[in-house]
């Protein structure tokens, strides 16, 4: 991460909710796997398999797709049960722009809020003001401009959107490559060009300049949306993701505990094909998956958010 300017510190007045504390929390998750879970039992399976955090939600994206209708924040009871059942951090999703759902999640004590396109957006113009919260936020992005707009709103972590609930990694690859390519391009720009780049990216100049200097986002970048196998997870890491979210891929598969542990191993040893091969053996059935080409535009979650 970039070394953020230090907030004046004192021994007697601890400061909570600072950018360093919010972004620093995501730094602790790096190299790890964050798993979608719908109940305490699944949360324990995820923790035992070595997940660094769990995402508590009522339905995994594959079921949200199947059921249709409006997808909302989960029941507080269910989130609390999950919080009580594991010692690793617990994340939960709010709808885009639904800052009251986010307030509720903060009051429940979740460790991270995912302002997520997987749920039905509540505001088609504005995302939530994430600086208004002590709880840090992670947001999805399909390109660099989108990632920087979310960071400008206070997001402390970014993930590729991918196409959740499809079991198809193609969109996650597209988004991660897009973000990495745009960062690489910025690296080659001189100061004169960065102003125009900021305009093109529709992002604040200061953030664009920071990314050009750092050669990376100023926050942790994970991959999400379609990861279903150990090799998928390792692919995303080799492409530059600092960790992965796995949604439907685990608990929609034949042997969730085994697949979860296998994806954790492959995420740590993402550059060792022998270990990935061993992790991929006899995992049982993967989730069936959806071909993204056949998804109608209205069912593409990645188009949600602006």
């Amino acid at each position: 991460m970039s070394t953020l300017p230090s907030t004046p510190q004192s021994a007697d007045n601890p400061a909570t909710g600072t950018a360093r504390v919010k972004r620093g929390m995501a730094e602790q998750l790096k190299g790890g796997v964050i798993m979608d879970v719908v109940n305490a039992e699944q949360a324990k399976i995820a923790e035992d398999a070595g997940a660094v955090a769990v995402m508590a939600l009522e339905r995994v994206p594959a079921d949200i797709r199947k059921d249709g209708g409006v997808a909302r924040m989960s029941d507080p009871n269910m989130i609390e049960e999950i919080i009580e059942s594991v010692s690793i951090p617990v994340m939960a999703k709010s709808r885009i722009g639904h800052f009251v759902e986010a307030q509720v999640l903060q009051s429940l004590g979740v460790d991270y809020i995912d302002e997520s396109e997987v749920l039905t957006p509540a505001d088609e113009v504005n995302h939530s003001d994430k600086f208004a919260f002590t709880t840090p936020f992670v947001c999805g992005a399909t390109n660099l401009g989108e990632a920087l707009r979310r960071i400008a709103e206070g997001a402390a972590m970014i993930r590729s959107k991918g196409e959740a609930g499809t079991g198809n990694v193609v969109e996650a690859v597209r988004h991660l490559r897009q973000i990495k390519n745009e960062i690489a391009r910025l690296r080659g720009y001189d100061n004169n060009e960065l102003y125009a780049a900021a305009k093109e990216l529709r992002a604040p100049y200061e953030l664009v300049k920071e990314v050009a200097e750092l050669g990376k986002l100023p926050v942790v970048l994970f991959s999400a949306g379609g990861v279903a196998t150990p090799a998928d997870a390792a692919l995303m890491r080799q492409l530059g993701a600092e960790g992965v979210f796995v949604g439907s891929g685990i608990f929609k598969s034949g042997d969730p505990a085994k697949r979860a542990a296998a994806i954790v191993k492959a995420t740590t040893f993402y550059d060792d094909p022998k270990i990935i091969a061993d992790a991929s053996r006899n995992l049982g059935e993967a989730m069936v998956g959806i071909n993204c080409d056949t998804l109608p535009e209205t069912e593409r979650y990645a188009n949600r958010g602006w």
Binding site: Q9, P14, M25
Partner: peptide, 23 residues
């Protein structure tokens, strides 16, 4: 939990030059 995560200055014995930034 994360909502209680904080920053504070910490005096460490053996570290000269004033308190360290504790995150």
């Amino acid at each position: 939990r994360q909502n209680e995560s904080f920053e504070a200055a910490v005096e460490v014995a053996g570290i000269d030059g004033g308190p360290v930034e504790g995150v």
